[in-house]
Each structure stands twice: as C-alpha cells, then as structure tokens.
C-alpha cells in the first residue's frame, strides 16, 4: 500500500512539473518578446538599454510623455479613492447585515455579484447619462475644475470591484465571530463607532487588505470605461502611446504587469498570515459541520 502511495506521489510530481513547465513557457514567451522588443537598439540592430533608461528617468518621462505621466498619477489617485469608497461602503454594510438583518444577506450578495454578469462595456452605455447628470450637478456646486476631474470615475470603479472585494471581506467576516465580539464590546460600554473601528476592523485586517490589493490591481488595469468616457488613466495612456512610441509603451506594459504581479504575490502572503490562517479555517470547518 505504501509503495503504491509513493508511486502516485511520484507520478503526481512528474505531472506537476511537466504541466507547470509547459504552461510557464507558454506564458513566458510573449513576456520575453516584450523584453526583447524593449531592449532593441536603434534600427532594430543590437542591444540597447535606452528605452529603460528613459523610463527610469522620471523627470524626462514627465516632460516627454505628459500623457503617460498624467495617466499614472490619475490611476494612482483612482486606486486610492476606489479603495476608500469601497471599504466605506462594504465593511459597515456587511457587518451590519450580518449582525442585525441576516435576511438581507442574500440580497446584498446578489447585488455585489451582479457586476460579474453586466459586462463593463454595457455598464458604460448605462452610465453615460448618470455621469452627464452628475457632472451637471458638480459643475453647479463646485465649478468646472472639479466636475471635469477624471477621479469621479472611481465611483464607477467601485461597482466593478464589488464582486471581488465582497468575496474577500465575506471570507474575513466568516472567520470571526462578529456577534460575540460586538456583544462583548457593547456590554463593556462601547458605542457602534467604537465597535466598528476598534473591534471589527482590526479583526478583518487581512480580509480588508486583500480586498484593497485586488481593488488596486483592478483599477490600475481598467481600460474600457476610461477609454470610452475619453478619460486618461494608465491603460489609456499606454494605449495611446502604443500608436506613437511602441518601445516605451511596451516597456510600460511590461512594468505594469510585473508591478501587478508583485502586488498579488505580496497579497498571497498577507492573506494566509495572521488570523486568516490554518487554525481559524479548521475551527470554521468544525463549526460548519457541527
């Protein structure tokens, strides 16, 4: 029996490395193509680090490629705003629903997962009258400078990231006993804001972090909505740049992919560390089966 086990184990290992190697090659080739393309010398002859040197020189990028610079700044702003609005919207609502109105849980889940079924391109069609209306009011109250800001797109991005952040936060809420924690805090005299800020949030740290990381990655990669609303963000700038300066745009593309990878890779360590770890998971499965 143990011999058979070992054989299966061995066969699995061969299979694993075989498949992973093949697929890695499949995925690595175009990335390698990008690297090759960006290190090409003038006229396609020889090697040169010129493209990367240009890109590393932030001052030169800001003056030579204003669109790109603007796109990066906008995307970072959008990411921060989207994370803030998403957290403000989801964490209190989901906690409250779990504590007080468990009946509404299905509805909230349905609404949060709905964006998965509404393609972004369809959302653009429906959002354009909303944005016309919103911009009108904003102009009325704050003037054109604010109403024309690209940052308002973050309101639409929150909808796009809802399904992903909902799942992350839901997993976090599931792994802690919200009711007991909040009742204990309330009986010690804490008000709801204190419960939220000092009890629930610290316990949800890793869930909130992973929801935020996912949001950042998604916002930095968003193209459809920004492009069709004729706004500039990282991806749109990259797209426009691709038409004039191919090498730089490919280099930016490669950097953005690597950067997003690093974010997600870091996240995979955050998600499993601390309270979201093996112990809580084991406790949870025991509770569910009981």
């Amino acid at each position: 029996m143990s011999g058979q086990r070992a054989r299966i184990r061995r066969r699995q290992r061969t299979f694993r490395w075989g498949v992973v190697t093949l697929v890695s090659a499949f995925f690595a080739l175009p990335l390698l193509g990008m690297l090759d393309f960006t290190t090409r010398g003038p006229g396609g002859v020889g090697r040169s680090g010129q493209t990367w040197r240009t890109l590393a020189d932030f001052g030169a990028v800001a003056t030579d490629y204003p669109t790109l610079n603007d796109g990066v700044v906008t995307s970072v702003g959008l990411a921060v705003l989207t994370v803030a609005v998403m957290l403000l919207l989801l964490v209190p609502t989901m906690t409250w629903v779990r504590l007080r109105v468990p009946r509404a849980q299905r509805l909230v889940e349905f609404v949060c997962l709905l964006p998965l079924t509404v393609p972004a391109i369809v959302l653009v069609v429906g959002l354009s009258p909303i944005y016309t209306w919103l911009t009108g009011w904003l102009r009325y109250f704050f003037g054109t400078a604010i109403s024309e800001s690209t940052l308002w797109l973050s309101l639409a991005y929150v909808v796009l990231v809802l399904p992903y952040s909902y799942r992350a936060i839901d997993a976090g809420l599931r792994s802690i006993d919200v009711r007991t924690l909040s009742e204990a805090a309330r009986s010690l005299g804490a008000g709801w804001p204190t419960v939220m800020w000092r009890i629930i949030l610290p316990n949800l740290r890793s869930a909130v972090l992973s929801a935020s990381f996912l949001t950042v990655a998604l916002v930095l990669g968003e193209f459809t909505i920004a492009n069709l609303f004729s706004r500039n963000n990282l991806q749109v700038a990259m797209y426009l740049l691709g038409k004039s300066d191919a090498q730089i745009s490919v280099a930016v593309g490669l950097v953005s992919l690597v950067f997003a990878f690093l974010i997600l890779f870091a996240m995979s360590f955050v998600g499993s560390a601390g309270q979201g770890g093996a112990l809580t998971r084991r406790l949870r499965s025991r509770k569910e089966s009981a």
């Binding site: 175009p30 390698l32 990008m34 090759d36 960006t38 998604l218 930095l220 990669g221 991806q235 997003a260």
Partner: peptide, 19 residues
C-alpha cells in the same frame, strides 16, 4: 491573477511585440 484581471492592453502589446 495578473493575467486574468490585469492583462488587457499590455497583453495585446506583448503579442504585437513578439509576433
């Protein structure tokens, strides 16, 4: 995760650069 959610424009660039 990166390729599934983030790819988009960069992925298209990777292909034009390679092919």
């Amino acid at each position: 995760g990166v390729l599934a959610q983030f790819g988009g424009v960069a992925l298209a660039f990777a292909f034009t650069a390679s092919f």
